[in-house]
Nucleic acid binder design. Structure first.
Length: 257
DNA sequence: ATGGTCGAGTATCGA
């Protein structure tokens, strides 16, 4: 099973690239983030024509997440399943794809360290763990994929010195991520590749992509039963090139199930 | 390192 994740930064703008990528990469499951669409505008039919069922959770303008699957798509859950107050943002959607519990996540950016947005980011990550406890358990086949807006290690950013005092690299954010790993999730791409300079996001500005100034902030976190069966994983940098690219590249993980 | 660029929507704001 090939499970992929991609922050498309507006599916309206990216639809042609998304259809192209789905066609040549052939993911069985694709988690999308930042569709920036309302639910009524999500192009279910276009993906259906390629053999995918899809569910979307979006309110238009900002955020918006989706799951596409050609191996079954059951029991969709929009947002958190903990029964507490709904998240005002559309950043989380979950469903069962075959025998895998899949969540597509768009973790808040945090904007600046110590801001209300930063506090929201940390609390959102803690709440994600409670969400997983409601829906599943680490003994099951679980994949939590998306834009985490956290670089797990210094080698996941192009220049650690440039990020001192910034979000995405703070001990608190990394601790929140480590807490998810303690729950039973494994960074599938990192467990296969240990190199630095393997990024998933490059700012549009200043030729960052061509200068290799990126960050690895898009992750596929999988539970141990899946992690033991990972056969391959890759970031498709080609999708960041050419006409009208997203600022993120898609990431996929192949699992022998 | 933040200024460059995008995409929201149409003046700026967010990333």
């Amino acid at each position: 099973m090939r499970i992929a994740t991609w922050n498309v930064n507006s599916l309206k703008v990216r639809m042609e690239r998304a259809l192209e990528w789905v066609s040549y990469a052939g993911p069985d499951v694709l988690c999308l983030q930042e569709t920036k669409l309302g639910d009524a505008a999500f192009p279910h039919m276009a993906f259906s024509a390629l053999g995918y069922d899809s569910v979307h959770h979006g309110s238009g303008q900002w955020n918006g997440v989706a799951i596409l699957s050609r191996v079954g798509l059951e029991s969709p859950v929009m947002g958190f399943a903990d029964g507490a107050d709904p998240d005002p943002d559309t950043r989380l959607i979950s469903a069962r794809c075959g025998a895998v519990h899949v969540s597509s996540v768009y973790v808040p950016n945090g904007r600046s360290v110590g801001s209300d947005h930063y506090v929201y980011k940390l609390s959102w990550l803690a709440r994600l763990e409670r969400h997983l406890d409601v829906l599943t358990s680490p003994e099951e086949q679980v994949a939590v994929c998306g834009d985490f807006n956290i670089a797990p290690e210094d080698k996941d950013v192009w220049g650690p010195a440039a990020f001192v005092g910034s979000t995405h690299v703070t001990p608190e954010e990394r601790a929140a991520l480590a807490h998810l790993e303690d729950w039973g999730l494994v960074d599938a791409f990192r467990s296969r590749w240990q190199d630095d300079r393997l990024y998933t996001y490059w700012d549009y500005r200043a030729g960052d992509f061509h200068e290799h100034r990126g960050m690895r902030i898009d992750l596929a976190l999988v539970s141990r039963p899946l992690a033991d069966k990972v056969t391959w994983s890759l970031v498709d940098r080609n999708a960041r090139k050419g006409k009208l690219p997203s600022d993120h590249a898609p990431l996929f993980v192949d699992i022998n199930i």
